[in-house]
């Protein structure tokens, strides 16, 4: 466990808790893409199939349970409990445009043509693009609540920190995971524009506005 990976996981947990906090306290899913959250659910379920078959550590299992349960809870809040506040008109990204390519790529590029490895690769590829509906929604609505911006910053930072972890592991352990690293770089690059807006606006106390 490198420090970067621990920082990345904590940033990930922070993001998940920030989103639950925002929806629960404002009793509103306004500005949140349900489609992104649905895809995150898929990401965790397809990635952690080994939750009950391979025990790595208490930390590893606890985090997997947390990620799966928190993402299910988030989807429940958006599509059921606070359904009336879900802004479906602005959450128009076609999920199949990312789910299908991720599945096809996983069938082509995987470490073994087994259900588990294909499911894992699908999860890695899907996670890289799952944020797209949310980023599209922010550009469509033209702005994001501050807490939503902080959520996105924490979420984008998590995989960026993982990249540092992979560099660290390659340097010290001499191996790396091409699938995870490639997808992780794509995932982090997709936040590029958001990171720019975050650092130039939100940090200075202004609302995140996507300039028209």
């Amino acid at each position: 466990m490198t420090l970067f990976r621990l920082a990345g996981d904590l940033s990930h947990v922070l993001a998940i808790l920030l989103l639950l906090y925002k929806i629960w306290t404002t009793k509103s899913a306004a500005g949140i893409s349900g489609k992104t959250q649905l895809m995150f659910c898929m990401v965790y379920v397809t990635r952690y199939l080994d939750l009950f078959t391979s025990f790595i550590s208490v930390y590893n299992s606890t985090m997997k349970v947390l990620f799966i349960s928190a993402s299910v809870a988030t989807v429940y809040l958006i599509y059921f409990k606070f359904k009336a506040t879900y802004d479906g008109n602005h959450d128009t990204f076609r999920m199949e445009f990312v789910i299908v390519p991720a599945l096809i790529l996983a069938l082509i590029w995987n470490y073994a043509f087994t259900f588990f490895e294909i499911s894992w690769a699908f999860s890695i590829f899907l996670e890289a693009v799952a944020i797209l509906p949310q980023l599209f929604m922010v550009t469509k609505t033209g702005e994001a609540e501050n807490i939503t911006s902080h959520y996105l910053f924490a979420l984008g930072s998590y995989r960026a920190l993982y990249i540092l972890n992979w560099i660290d592991r390659y340097y010290f352990e001499g191996h790396w995971d091409p699938i995870a690293v490639t997808a992780g770089i794509v995932q982090t690059v997709l936040y590029g524009d958001f990171f720019y807006l975050y650092f130039t606006r939100v940090i200075k106390g202004r609302k995140l506005q996507v300039l028209p």
């Binding site: 790595i56 590893n60 985090m63 990620f67 073994a112 894992w120 191996h175 790396w176 091409p178 995870a180």
Partner: peptide
């Protein structure tokens, strides 16, 4: 190889 490299990661 890459396979086991990051299965201990989340």
């Amino acid at each position: 190889s890459g396979a086991t490299a990051s299965k201990d990661e989340l």
